[in-house]
């Protein structure tokens, strides 16, 4: 696969997901692009236009439930970040966080990270290549690992700031 096609695949997958296209349809659309340009020798942009514009043609209406769930997950994510940050500062300064032990705030923050993780897993169902059956996107384990690493890095950065400032 050329660099052009690999980049286009990544951009098209991302754009189709952002438009809430079903994983089966995403696999078909991406495979059609790759198959077609392999036959014609064109670049994907020459044949299909920019990935974002091509993907927009497949966009359906976003259900109200999905929009509300998105807002709810952002709120939970923010609460999680706030509890983790305050928990870390509380541990370093040996202080309670809003009346609770700092360790409890930290654990509560980590627990609040679970719903956004589940939401992300549900939103990013794996896309299979209809030609081979192989995955075109990372599996659920990669989503869990990347989100856990993100949270750990956030906690580590906060700890560093706390150690330097408290």
């Amino acid at each position: 696969m050329s660099t052009d096609t690999a980049t286009y695949r990544r951009d098209l997958l991302r754009a189709l997901r952002s438009h809430h296209v079903a994983p089966d349809r995403i696999g078909e659309i991406v495979a059609e692009v790759e198959s077609h340009v392999a036959e014609t020798g064109e670049t994907p942009v020459e044949a299909f236009g920019p990935a974002r514009e091509y993907a927009a043609g497949f966009a359906g209406p976003r259900p109200l439930g999905a929009r509300l769930a998105g807002v709810w997950l952002v709120v939970l994510g923010a609460a999680c970040g706030w509890l983790i940050a305050n928990g870390v500062f509380g541990l370093v300064a040996d202080e309670r966080v809003h009346g609770m032990p700092a360790g409890v705030a930290l654990a509560l923050g980590a627990l609040l990270w679970v719903p956004p993780m589940i939401g992300q897993l549900r939103r990013q169902l794996p896309v299979a290549d209809p030609r081979t059956g192989r995955r075109m996107t990372p599996g659920p384990a990669a989503v869990v690992v990347s989100m856990t690493v993100f949270l750990a890095l956030l906690a580590a950065a906060t700890w560093l700031v706390a150690v330097l400032t408290v």
Binding site: S35, E39, P130, T132
Partner: peptide, 9 residues
Amino acid sequence: EGAGGPGRK
């Protein structure tokens, strides 16, 4: 499966 290619629909 295509002949040496990525498959045809």
